[in-house]
C-alpha cells in the first residue's frame, strides 16, 4: 500500500525530528509514502465560525492536491494539521451547501466532495499495521522507560474527527506499550497545553503546561511522548521558564512519539534528530543506554 504524506510547515524546520523519525519508521515498517508535491499551510486551526468559509480554503486545497496526486488517503503527523484537514474534509463530505460555495469559490481547482481519507500516524499504525506487527519489528525495546503519552487536544476533539474515544482514549498508550515502554496514565494526558495562547496569554499557557508536567511527574513518569509541535514548544521548550517560575517542577524529558518508535525499531539514529530536543531529553536517552545499543 502506498499513501500520500502531508508534512505541515513546522515539520520542515523546528519539528524536523518529528518528520525524519516518522518517515524512518514508515520505511522500517515497509510503508510506502509520497509527499504531496505541492501543498500549502493548512491554517493550523479549523475555523469555528459558522459563516466563515474562507479559512476552509487552505485545507480543502490540500485535499484537492491529494486527489490530484492520485491517492485516496493522506497521512498527517502534526496533530494540528490532522485536525484541520480532517474537519475540513468532514465538512466537504457532509455539508452540501457549503461544499458548493467552496467549490465555486475555488474556480481554478477541480471540485472536491470529501472523498479523501485523512489519517494520523497513530491511527494509521493501529489500523493498517497493527500492534502485533509493530511489536514484531521492535529491535530495541524501550524496557524500563516510564513513559507518559500525552495526547493534547486536536487528535481527540471534537468527537467526529477523534482518532479514538474522546474522553477515554487508549491508542497512544497501546502504541507505546507495543514499543516496550512502561505506560504512565495520567488524567491531564488529554488536556490542553495552552496551544496558541502562547502568543495571547503566555503566562496562562505556561501555567497549564506546568500543571500537565507536574501531574505526569507525580504519577511516576520519567519521560513524556508527544504528537504535536505546538505541545512540544509549550511543554518542552518552555520548561526552562517553568523551572524558574514554579517551585517543585522537575524537568521532564520530551520526545515525539515517532522518535521513540524510531529508537525501538532500531533505525539509524541520524533520523532521530535529537539535537532539536531539549538537552534533558538527549541526556535521558543516553542514560537509558538506548542510543548506544542502536549505534553498536
Amino acid at each position: 500500500m502506498k499513501i500520500s504524506y502531508y508534512p505541515g510547515c513546522t515539520l520542515k524546520t523546528k519539528a524536523k525530528n518529528l518528520e525524519s523519525s516518522a518517515l524512518a519508521c514508515l520505511d522500517a515498517l515497509g510503508v510506502e509514502y509520497e509527499e504531496l508535491p505541492r501543498w500549502n499551510c493548512c491554517g493550523a486551526v479549523y475555523s469555528l465560525s459558522d459563516d466563515d468559509l474562507i479559512h476552509l480554503i487552505a485545507p480543502v486545497r490540500d485535499l484537492i492536491r491529494v486527489q490530484e496526486q492520485g491517492f485516496d488517503t493522506v497521512l498527517t503527523l502534526c496533530s494540528m494539521c490532522y485536525n484541520t484537514l480532517a474537519r475540513a474534509n468532514e465538512l466537504m463530505k457532509n455539508d452540501e451547501v457549503k461544499r458548493g460555495t467552496i467549490n465555486d469559490f475555488m474556480d481554478e481547482e477541480p471540485d472536491y466532495k470529501g472523498e479523501i481519507k485523512v489519517v494520523h500516524f497513530l491511527d494509521f499504525i493501529r489500523d493498517e499495521i497493527g500492534w502485533d506487527k509493530l511489536k514484531a519489528n521492535v529491535k530495541n525495546p524501550l524496557n524500563g522507560m516510564k513513559l507518559a503519552p500525552y495526547y493534547g487536544c486536536t487528535l481527540l476533539r471534537p468527537g467526529d474527527v477523534s482518532i479514538d474515544k474522546s474522553n477515554s482514549p487508549v491508542v497512544f498508550e497501546e502504541c507505546m506499550e507495543a514499543l516496550g515502554a512502561e505506560i504512565v496514565k495520567f488524567p491531564k494526558a488529554i488536556e490542553c497545553c495552552g496551544s496558541y495562547q502562547v502568543l495571547g496569554n503566555p503566562e496562562a499557557a505556561l501555567k497549564v503546561s506546568n500543571d500537565i508536567i507536574t501531574e505526569a511527574t507525580a504519577f511516576g513518569a520519567e519521560a513524556m511522548a508527544l504528537t504535536c509541535p505546538l505541545c512540544d514548544y509549550n511543554l518542552g521548550h518552555r520548561q526552562e521558564e517553568m523551572l524558574k517560575k514554579y517551585e517543585g517542577t522537575k524537568a521532564l524529558p520530551m520526545f515525539y512519539f515517532t522518535q521513540l518508535m524510531a529508537v525501538a525499531l532500531g533505525v539509524d539514529p541520524e533520523n532521530y534528530n535529537l539535537d532539536l530536543n531539549q538537552a534533558v531529553s538527549q541526556e535521558f536517552l543516553k542514560g537509558k543506554n538506548l542510543l548506544e545499543k542502536v549505534s553498536t
Binding site: C41, H55, I57, R61, E108
Partner: peptide, 12 residues
C-alpha cells in the same frame, strides 16, 4: 506571512 489563508487571489 503566517496570516496567509491560501485563498489564491494573489496568484490569480
Amino acid at each position: 506571512l503566517f496570516r496567509c489563508v491560501a485563498c489564491n487571489a494573489c496568484s490569480k
